[in-house]
Computed example of a mutant assay.
Amino acid sequence: MVTGADTALEAELRRLAGSVPDPELPVLTLEELGVLRGVRILGPGRVEVELTPTYTGCPAIEAMTADIERVLHEYGMAEVSVVKVLSPAWSTDDISADGRRKLTEFGIAPPRPSAVHGPVPLTLTVRCPHCGSSETELLSRFSSTACKALRRCVACREPFDHFKEL
């Protein structure tokens, strides 16, 4: 998160790191996904980037780390350290409004925002990102990644991924 205490260089490095596409959902940047937690200058040419994986065993964190290191090395940072931050845990509430819009435009039903902290409230409908119908059915609890479920719209018959709420 950019605060008033961030330097102009930290803000620029955060912008660059945040612009890296998610390896599993390349329609989203790491900033839009909400996994980029912080960027800190450690010294001349040295920067530390904090990432929170979408879940503890997320295999995409390695690709995210390599992509951030590449982008910041190209910018001129000699030493880039990417550290995993597990607390507070990532939540689908961390996905930005732009990120949710992009998921829908890409054909993935975005997770519903939670109104409260704590357990995710049970909601029985998921809107189709293609036609907007709430008449959908679950085909598989898991899709191309563990964080998505495979659903089908009863109205337009199109299958789609649903980014599960966490």
Rank of each mutant, 00 (worst) to 15 (best):
E31A: 15
L72T: 02
L33R: 07
R70D: 12
G34K: 00
P53L: 02
E74Y: 00
L138S: 11
V82K: 09
C58W: 04
V120T: 13
P119D: 12
P110F: 00
E32G: 03
V82A: 08
Y75A: 15
G45K: 13
E105S: 05
G38L: 03
I61D: 09
A63N: 09
E69V: 15
P110I: 00
Y55H: 11
R127D: 12
V85M: 12
E48C: 09
G99P: 09
V82G: 09
S143M: 08
L139I: 11
V35E: 04
L28K: 03
E48S: 11
V83A: 14
S143W: 11
G118C: 07
P53I: 01
G38W: 01
G45M: 06
E105G: 01
R141L: 11
F106D: 13
H130D: 09
V39Q: 02
V83F: 03
S143I: 05
R112Q: 14
G45A: 13
R70M: 10
L122N: 07
C128T: 00
S114K: 14
S87F: 12
V49L: 06
C147S: 13
G99C: 02
P111Q: 06
I95S: 05
S81N: 11
T29L: 08
I68N: 06
T92R: 04
A63G: 10
V80D: 05
R100K: 14
T125Y: 12
A109R: 07
A89W: 08
G34A: 03
Y75I: 02
T54W: 02
P113K: 11
H73S: 13
V85N: 09
A89R: 14
P113N: 07
P59S: 06
S96Y: 01
R127I: 00
G118V: 03
P110N: 05
V82S: 08
Y55T: 05
A89Y: 04
D67T: 08
G76H: 08
L103Q: 03
H117C: 08
T29Y: 04
S144M: 07
V49S: 07
G99E: 00
I68S: 06
C131Y: 01
R141D: 10
I61N: 07
L72C: 04
A115K: 13
L30M: 10
S114C: 14
S81L: 14
T123S: 13
L33V: 04
P110L: 02
Y75S: 10
A109P: 08
A78K: 15
T123F: 09
A89L: 12
E48I: 02
T125R: 14
L103P: 10
L138V: 08
